[in-house]
Design a protein around this nucleic acid. Structure first.
Lengths: 207, 207
DNA sequence: TTGTGTGAATCTCTTCACAGCT
DNA sequence: AGCTGTGAAGAGATTCACACAA
């Protein structure tokens, strides 16, 4: 295990995504300076250098960072230098939209199974993916080696569903349910809460 | 204008949403302590008190915070003590899901017009909301007094669309397009970027 | 006695500024 | 000359701890 990330700001990880995205627009051309990468992403050049320095010394003084190499390094750090098999849980409005959302697949996040509790949906398939009863979760996760779950169920079902997901051995959860769910420390959880973001917007717009 | 918010951490605003949500589960019962509110939300009690203290002295030593009153105060601060008229821009997968998503309406965010560039959609209506040509944006915003926009268009269209939205006089934008867009300082912008969040998850899960 | 509100300490993140590498 | 990598300073956010109000 080469990786040991002690004091890396959470905000750094978040910015890495933007660096990576910006680098995709730089072709494979030779080098890019922290200043240029800063301009492309809207952060400061010092911050770019600091962020990258947490993971090694990728730059060459007087030149900058080698574009392709840096992109690969960041991809590796972000864990997107490979495919992730993902279970989508909840096939309501949002779940259906996420299933059809092509950007996930393009980034290497493949939805390989959908789970729902509606008997009218179970057994069918959508966008080429089979829909399973949530009771089959553990079995399918094992069989298909699913490593990540996207939760798109109503708030009142979220905690129970997440309990099952954790029980199935999945260690990475993206939760869209507007609800503070609890998971063990060994499980990574990222929340996307539309309502909270809307309220944040409404708050800053109200000042 | 009573409001003047100098040094309030951005994170505080975000937590207010969670406090508000937790308070909804407390009925109208008398008082709640910072400790109890902390337990309900997962933050520390000192943080709860600090957060609330930015906006006034709502608590009573020895008792706690009056539940209903606090809920009202926070709603006012968040700007959700009223209705917001919202334009949805982009009626693809995500846009359609957002239009049907009931939680927005329930929180007082009413989608009163949809805009798209697809001639096949323009002029029709969905979920009881009319679909307009994006060229009609300025006119409709004025006519309906729309104050907020939700952007659900592809990344490559986002900056142009947001330019138009800003031009129409809207001062609050929730952007789902995976793209760092620029807006003038007078406009509030909140981004929800699925890909960035997925990568963040993949990163922390990879360590 | 209980629990708020808040200075002071601590911890975390960002910027400054520059030595040193190319 | 140009740009990285990084100590040190600065800014920001959180926790500590306690005076004081009910």
């Amino acid at each position: 295990m080469e990786r040991k990330k002690a004091n890396i700001p959470v905000t750094t990880v978040y910015r890495l995504s933007y660096y990576c995205r910006a680098l995709l627009e730089c072709g494979t051309s030779g080098f890019i300076s922290s200043q240029d990468l800063a301009k492309l992403t809207g952060f400061s050049d010092a911050l770019v250098r600091r962020d990258l320095s947490y993971f090694g010394r990728f730059g060459i003084p007087g030149r900058g960072y080698p574009v392709s190499e840096l992109r690969e390094k960041i991809s590796r750090i972000l864990g997107i230098d490979r495919k992730w098999k993902v279970a989508l849980i909840g096939l309501g409005n949002l779940g259906s939209a996420l299933l059809r959302y092509k950007a996930f697949e393009k980034q290497g996040f493949q939805i390989v199974a959908v789970f729902d509790s509606d008997p009218g949906k179970i057994g069918k398939s959508r966008s080429g993916v089979e829909i399973w009863d949530i009771n089959q979760l553990e079995k399918e996760v094992r069989k298909r080696q699913i490593e990540m779950a996207i939760i798109a169920v109503p708030a009142d079902a979220a905690q129970e569903v997440i309990g099952r997901v954790v029980g199935s051995g999945i260690k990475a959860i993206l939760n869209f349910a507007p609800m503070k769910v609890k998971v063990p420390g060994s499980v990574s959880l990222v929340n996307i809460d539309f309502t909270v973001e809307l309220e944040r917007l409404s708050c800053v717009a109200t000042r």
